[in-house]
Design a protein around this nucleic acid. Sequence first.
DNA 1: CATTTTAATGCAATTATGTTGCAAATATAA
DNA 2: TTATATTTGCAACATAATTGCATTAAAATG
Lengths: 145, 145
Amino acid sequence: MENKTERFEKLLVKNGLKRTAPRLQVLEILSGRDSATSQPYLEQVMGKDADRVTLYRVLQAFEEKGIIHKVLDQQGTANYAICSDGCSAHEHHDEHVHFNCDNCHKIYCLDTVKIPALKVPAGFKVEHLNLIATGLCANCSDKVN
Amino acid sequence: MENKTERFEKLLVKNGLKRTAPRLQVLEILSGRDSATSQPYLEQVMGKDADRVTLYRVLQAFEEKGIIHKVLDQQGTANYAICSDGCSAHEHHDEHVHFNCDNCHKIYCLDTVKIPALKVPAGFKVEHLNLIATGLCANCSDKVN
DNA sequence: CATTTTAATGCAATTATGTTGCAAATATAA
DNA sequence: TTATATTTGCAACATAATTGCATTAAAATG
């Protein structure tokens, strides 16, 4: 299998972004997690490796290019996850469900779950859907029992 | 029909809140709009009639009592709308769809639209659903044509 | 490989947003 | 009318986000 860092480098180049340390580090961190990652967490993990401002700008650039997508949790905090392949700057295929665990507070991207069609009042034209479910994730509901 | 202000006063008393000017003003503003209202907008409209801190506290108290509910828009900004009758401090019946117009940026509560049942992976237990649709509202899609 | 060009970073300063403590003012109860 | 309990507004503080700009680093060029 191809080297992970190499893959990230290609991803950056493909999107016209320079291969820099903070950017690779963000991709590294995000790819190593099974749920969306909050900005404060990223900030903490990166520590003094990168300025807070740089992190803002990296995340913003990634989002614009469709490399990552942003989910807001119940508190309005930004969380980020690497997009699955379908995404690009033009089209964010982000129509999957996000699951917010009340217990461990992880945010899962349930890529497999499709949002059912929705009947809206006449005149309304739906472009995107953003569905956030809250409750207990598989891990946590296991532990409770 | 009963006087609107009287209704608001009763609503406050019923929830153990004192009848004060800022509280009535907030109810007045929210009730006069057909979509959820952002905190910054409220702040602007109330101007020097009420302190910023007071607005925070009024909104917080109202939310706790189930008089209004909060929706976060795509930017994470808090928006508020008066709850329909089903709500109380104990149970927020907020499982309806919010529609975020890309053009006029209004947030509509589509009370009539039910969120369809959702199939989640084994182990996940859904407690609440929060569905935000974006696109064009009836007004704006009219104007475009 | 040296040099030029372009983009990205880090720092400082600024602005925006949200919170807390407390004295003064106001609404309700007595 | 007075007493009690809330609520308000101010000031101070804390946190989060944004902007401008000089410096640094990456890629393009010859």
